[in-house]
């Protein structure tokens, strides 16, 4: 559905987006991650046709967003960053207006407005002026606008920004559900959302794609992935270190915490021995009183940091 090819954007001499390429098919939810100023919003603005690319092309549903802008935009629902909306209108008036612009009339319009009011829980503020809405409600109103025509493609720039935990949960569920039939790109700074809603994630940094894969693939890039955390009582840290060093699959052991009664250690595997480590540790630890033993999945925030801030991440490890 969405095809981005060697897309670049220069602001003056600054490269906000630098030759990025990717595609999103129907049924995919693509999470867009990256530090502030990475170029996420700029990329989304080019996909929706708000700003023209400096070079490269974007097609949506086969339509070039520059050459066949109108046809492409019909397929797109867009929630811009900061959820702008006409503050002088009521929620109801605003949704009606966007429905009209999208070509909905009469009964179809009424139904569409009714549907999104339900989906986005806007009932209590329906006739309130947008100016007086709380941030979360304004965000939901703008989100409602983006799905009013039930588009095939959804571009959402930080859709859960400013929502309360319940609403965040609802919106993630909604994105996930809609993602089964649509192609969705959404950007976020909340890494749990990648697990909660995405089928795939892209990390961009300084305008370039630095990682692209399923949440599981990204997580396995973590150096924690496959490490085993172990907590035992009645054994000294030195003894654990010694015993673990004898195992062939172990790269190194880090003592995380040591107090009067127990020691917590994390054992890192050598490359390519994922999965079996926990078993061999359990064998080696016979006779110890094990309170906890589990394999780490690898953490997205750690992957994110090590990819986008390689220097500080290594420093912290030391």
């Amino acid at each position: 559905m969405i095809k981005v090819q060697e897309l670049s954007k220069l602001f003056g001499t600054k490269r906000a987006v630098d030759e990025i390429s990717f595609s999103v098919e129907r049924g995919e939810v693509l999470g867009f991650l990256g530090p502030n100023g990475a170029g996420k919003s700029t990329t989304m603005r080019m996909i929706t046709g708000f700003i023209p690319p400096s070079s490269g092309t974007v097609t949506v549903g086969g339509f070039d967003v520059v050459e066949q802008a109108i046809a492409a935009r019909r397929l797109i629902g867009y929630l811009p960053e900061n959820a702008p909306a006409y503050t002088d209108m009521t929620v109801y008036g605003f949704l009606n207006f966007t429905a009209e612009i999208r070509g909905l009339r009469g009964d179809a319009k009424k139904k569409a407005v009714h549907r999104v009011v339900g989906t986005c829980f806007l009932e209590p503020v329906l006739h309130q002026s947008i100016e007086t809405l709380s941030k979360g409600y304004r965000h939901r109103t703008c989100f409602a606008q983006s799905i009013i025509h039930d588009p095939d493609v959804l571009i959402l720039d930080e859709p859960t920004d400013g929502l309360d935990p319940n609403q965040k949960h609802e919106i993630r569920q909604l994105i996930r559900r809609m993602g089964e039939k649509k192609a969705i790109i959404f950007s976020t700074h909340i890494l749990e959302e990648v697990d909660a809603a995405c089928t795939r994630a892209i990390i961009i940094d300084r305008g370039k794609i630095v990682a692209n894969g399923t949440p599981h693939q990204l997580r396995s890039k973590s150096e924690w992935a496959g490490a085993v955390t172990l907590r035992v009582t009645g054994i000294s840290a030195a003894a654990i270190n010694e015993r673990m060093a004898q195992l062939s699959a172990v790269k190194r052991t880090a003592i995380l915490r040591e107090d009067a009664t127990s020691v917590t250690a994390r054992v890192f595997p050598k490359p390519n021995v994922n999965g079996v480590l926990a078993g061999s540790i359990a064998d080696a630890a016979q006779g110890w009183r094990i309170e906890e033993l589990h394999t780490e999945e690898g953490r997205l925030d750690e992957v994110f940091r090590s990819i986008t801030m390689p220097d500080t991440a290594t420093e912290e490890k030391k």
């Binding site: 046709g49 109108i70 935009r73 867009y78 909306a85």
Partner: peptide, 10 residues
């Protein structure tokens, strides 16, 4: 910022 909404409509 509504210009971004308006000009990305079809």
């Amino acid at each position: 910022g509504t210009i971004e909404l308006l000009l990305t409509m079809p």
